[in-house]
Write a protein that binds this DNA or RNA. Structure first.
Lengths: 215, 215
DNA sequence: ATGACAGTGTTTACACCGTAAACATGATTG
DNA sequence: CAATCATGTTTACGGTGTAAACACTGTCAT
């Protein structure tokens, strides 16, 4: 028997930035327990506000979850962004390969490090349009999808990938790492120790790269 | 205000095979709305039994969901099984390629045709052991994972894949089609029309095959 | 300054969900 | 035939999402 209703008084009746606070709380819930853990009442409880206060900022739980989803995507984007721009290689071909590998590796690493957030980032809500929408981008202003696209364009530009293979190649790239992430955090490979997971990730990227650069 | 409690009378007080009936109802719910739609009370309602009757057969909602998950896996396995054994090709190499393509194509097609069931089949519950467990196998007694493994072994046997690439290759294969499925039903590619989705699927398989057979 | 008003938070209320506990019914077996 | 066990049913409770009515506070014309 918890109180639940009847929130404790706050010195200031108005919160200031409740919407933002609720999203932050939601992100924490998602980090701890995935999308189904982002419970509206618990978010308001953590912020110290009555349950229905949330309805001044979100139409319903779904809307809150969507905002949390965007935030999760942004966090993933920031991580990938960092890895992408950290690449330093002598020539264009090596840079292209390193870029693709950096994106893929960090993608899977993020999933392994933040399984709850990762799953939340991919609830049914994002269409292709949103995959390039700025509120999901990293510091550089580019979404993960756009970074993969860029890396693959570098493959073509540095002539290690035949132009004929370029169309839709980002879908194989994305599919491989996304699928691997799911298998590693939720699926048949869940029990794999971290080191083994990392090794398999590199192998998967090896094979994808071989597929791209095959004549 | 629905009645909910107080189930309508049944001529026979005992149901006969309630457990099975509940799983079937659960599968329908999952087909219609994914894992979060398999609601214990609704399943009992559809079977025409009081909510708590379910607890004679399942420890809790999670247990019911796990059984539904197994059933979903079995349905996926049956579909893939069928496609695998329908392959008829003149030589071993062509058969190997056709087997892999058949498995991948059907995997994605199942996801597109039954998105709710597909998502239910991959809730966090299956470890590697269960991926080869008989209750998730198709008519042939082989799970999808085992069929991919078989197809890749044929690649090596017919010498179109270097042995050095064989270890863990099933993970790339699985990752690609699983990831693609997720992107197509939940992710950034959700809006793609079916024909385009099928085309991308074939391209993804092309590239994966190129990765496997690259020297 | 003041009073209407809009924005934001609170209370109350309700239906639905999962699940525990006690009870009822029907089949099985000594 | 009685005792027992398996299987359903009722009743009950706390948690969750959300609608409706109410309350507080800052803002802005008068």
């Amino acid at each position: 028997m918890t109180v639940d209703t009847a929130a404790p008084p706050r010195e200031n009746y108005h919160h200031g930035d409740l919407r933002h606070a609720l999203v932050l709380a939601g992100v924490e819930l998602a980090r701890e327990g995935g999308p189904e853990a982002v419970v509206l009442r618990e978010a308001t409880r953590r912020v110290g506000v009555s349950p229905n206060a949330a309805y001044r900022h979100f139409a319903d739980r779904e809307a809150l979850l969507a905002a949390v989803c965007d935030a999760a995507q942004a966090e993933l984007a920031a991580a990938i962004d960092e890895s992408y721009w950290a690449v330093r290689e002598p020539d264009a071909a090596a840079t292209a390969r390193a870029h693709l590998r950096a994106v893929g590796t960090r993608y899977v690493a993020f999933a392994l490090d933040n399984p709850g957030l990762f799953r939340t980032a991919f609830i049914a809500s994002s269409d292709l349009e949103r995959a390039t929408s700025p509120e999901r981008a990293g510091p550089s202003g580019l979404t993960p999808f756009q970074l993969v696209t860029a890396a693959l364009d570098e493959f073509v530009a540095s002539e290690i990938m035949p132009v004929s293979r370029r169309p839709n190649a980002e879908f194989l790239a994305w599919s491989s790492v996304h699928g691997l992430s799911m298998l590693l955090i939720d699926g048949p490979l869940r029990a794999l120790p971290r080191a083994a997971a990392d090794a398999v990730t590199q192998q998967v990227i090896d094979m994808a790269e071989a597929g791209f650069t095959a004549p």
